[in-house]
Each structure stands twice: as C-alpha cells, then as structure tokens.
C-alpha cells in the first residue's frame, strides 16, 4: 500500500517546483505549434502549472486521509482549483478581463481542459516517482536489514568462540587443575573432566544453529561445576528444569553467556558470594527461562550490557520479534534475566 501523506523536505519541494517550471515551459512550446503567441501560452501554462503544483504540495503536506477515494477526490479538486486559479491569474497577467472568456466560453473550456489534462499527467508522473522511490527505499531497507543480521550472526559466532576460551577463565581453570595435581588428585581429575566436557560441547555447538534445551543445560552444568570447584562455598547453584522439556529446540549460546555474566560480574566480585538459579518451564506455547543470581546487581556494577544487546538481537532475529528478553532487579539483591520464546513445532 502506498502512503498518501508525504513528508517532503524543503529541498525535495524545491526540486518538484523546478521540475514543474520546466514542464510548463515545454508545454508552452508544444502549444505554440497549434496556437498563436508563445508568450501567452507561456504565461498561462506557468500560472496553471505552478498553482496546481502548490495545491498538490499542500495536499501532500496536510491531508492525512487513508481512504483512497477521498484522497482521489482531494487530488481532483486540487487540479480543478489549480487550473481555475491559474487561468484567472493568467488572464490578469496577459491584461485580459477574465470575464471576456466567459462570453467566449469555448476558449475558457479549452484552456481549462488543457490545464486539467497536463496537470493530471504531471501529477501522475510525480506520484509514480514517489511510489518508485518508496519501493526502492523499502528494498534497500530490507537489504540492509538482511545484511546486518548476517553480519551479526558471524560476529556473535566469533564472539562466542572467544568467550568459550576466554583467557581469564581458561588460565584460572588450568592453574586450579595444576594446583590440585599436588594436593587432591581425584578433584583434579574431576575438574579436568568437566573442563573437557564443557569445551567439547561448546565447540561442537557453535557449529550448529539449533540445539536442544537439554544439550544447552548439560553444557552449563559442566561450566558451573568448574566454577564451583574453583569458588567453593562462595558459589551455590540450583537447576529447576521442568520434566519432559529437554527435547525442545533452543538456540545455542544464549544461556551460557548469561550464566557467565551472573558469575563473573555478579557473584565472583561479591565478598560473600551468592547463588545462581537456572529455571526453565513450558507455559502454553512458550518456553520460559530464568537466570537469577544473588550477586552484585548490574546497577551497582554499572556494567554495560554489550553481550545482552547481542543476545536480544539474536533472539529477535531467530524468533521474528516474538521472543521476549528482560533484565530485572532481583529481590533482595542481584539480577534476574528472563527469556521467553515461542515453542516452534514442525
């Protein structure tokens, strides 16, 4: 559907007027071939053309109707008013009494109909130009949207690849294992197993675009276990996953960065530590996932949510804006991130 109301900028309006002047001149030249003095044709055609043009500009600026019939009527009356006005103005300028034309009414009718015919043609011309440029704009917009979303996917892939082997996490974990080798072999083995498990799952997952919820939760368990071994009593965690929803599809690398955020920026920097709760449940046609921590809140940290914006954008593009993503303050402390996605059934 075409938008009837056009927000023309000053520059655009000026271009339209300039084009109109040009057309008017061309019309006057063509008419001279059939009718006498050129200057008279020129004056009438300019007067009528400019007045029609001004009427149209006004209509585009101020008429907001969405009804095509009403709009067509407005355009038609604009043409009539412009032609008649232009005719009267032209008569004055050529120093003829417009009343003379009322007696020679065939002359009046001829000028009016010429005005209407050319006015219609030129208005149609401008309208189609607007329509074409609107269509082009829309195509361009679509293209930009597609390219941006492709770029974002690639970027997030890279970012997540980096995140999994985030150096601080990697080296701290390796130091821990190294330390444990001297003091507690069993624990060292366990931690190494978790670490391997986590790496294998997360590296395999970045190559797939859809995975199941249970795969994601599995990886997160391994990830949290590593932190648990490192942080001891300071980190508590709980999984509250509803039964029988593990096989639902869920995109990879959505929950993991949120859990990472909660630990790294929420619980790790807090002296007394905290708890992280990961819950998932089915609610009619939606899958609701909550990641809650009792660490330092985002406000306190003034931590910017770069990773969060990325997650929101990815959810929006994966679920056609039907996903919901919210960051809330947890009571009494910490942060809750809520995700709600429609359940896709093939």
């Amino acid at each position: 559907m075409i938008k009837y109301r056009q927000e023309l900028s000053f520059k655009e309006a000026l271009t339209v007027i300039l084009y109109t002047l040009l057309f008017n001149t061309v019309i006057a030249i063509v008419l001279t071939y059939f009718l006498k003095p050129f200057w008279e044709n020129f004056v009438f055609s300019q007067c009528i053309g400019i007045l029609i043009c001004l009427c149209m500009l006004m209509i585009f600026r101020f008429i907001t109707t969405e009804n095509p019939l009403l709009w067509l009527l407005t355009i038609l009356s604009g043409l009539l008013v412009g032609s008649a006005g232009g005719f009267i103005l032209g008569a004055f300028l050529t120093e003829k009494n417009p009343l003379v034309y009322i007696r020679q009414y065939h002359e009046f009718i001829r000028i009016m109909s010429l005005g209407l015919i050319f006015g219609t043609i030129i208005t149609y011309f401008f309208l189609s130009r607007v329509r074409i440029s609107q269509a082009e704009d829309r195509i361009q917009e679509e293209k930009i949207k597609r390219l941006t979303s492709e770029k974002k996917t690639v970027e997030s892939h890279l970012k997540f690849l980096q995140a999994q082997i985030e150096p601080h996490f990697l080296f701290n974990t390796l130091s821990n294992i190294l330390g444990l080798l001297d003091t507690d072999l069993t624990k060292a083995k366990l931690m190494l197993t978790d670490f391997t498990h986590y790496l294998r799952l997360s590296l395999a997952k970045t190559r797939e675009s859809t995975t199941t919820l249970s795969q994601e939760i599995d990886m997160i368990k391994a990830y949290i276990e590593i932190f648990k071994a490192r942080m001891g009593e300071r980190l508590k965690y709980k999984f509250e996953i509803q039964d029988h929803i593990g096989e639902l599809p869920f995109p990879p690398m959505i929950i993991q960065p949120l859990v990472e955020n909660a630990i790294k920026h929420g619980i790790e920097p807090k002296v007394e530590g905290g708890e992280i709760i990961i819950s998932a449940k089915k609610d009619q046609d939606f899958l609701r996932i909550c990641i809650t921590d009792t660490g330092l809140g985002f406000i306190e940290q003034n931590n910017n949510g770069i990773g969060l914006t990325n997650i929101r954008e990815r959810l929006n593009s994966l679920y056609d804006d039907k996903a919901n993503f919210e960051v809330m303050e947890n009571v009494p402390c910490g942060t809750t991130v809520k995700i709600e996605v429609p359940i896709v059934t093939d």
Binding site: F298, I299, N302, N303, N304, G305, I306, L308, T309, R312, E326, V327, M328, E329, V331, T335, T336
Partner: peptide, 18 residues
C-alpha cells in the same frame, strides 16, 4: 548504563544503548 523502570512484576533494567 542502565535505567531502572518499574514494571508489572518488579524493577526492569533497560540498557541505555537500547
């Protein structure tokens, strides 16, 4: 970096980037 907004089920945090 964040704006606190009260909503139906608690305090929502909106990143200023958005």
């Amino acid at each position: 970096q964040w704006i606190r907004v009260s909503s139906r089920d608690g305090i929502r945090l909106i990143p200023t980037d958005e």
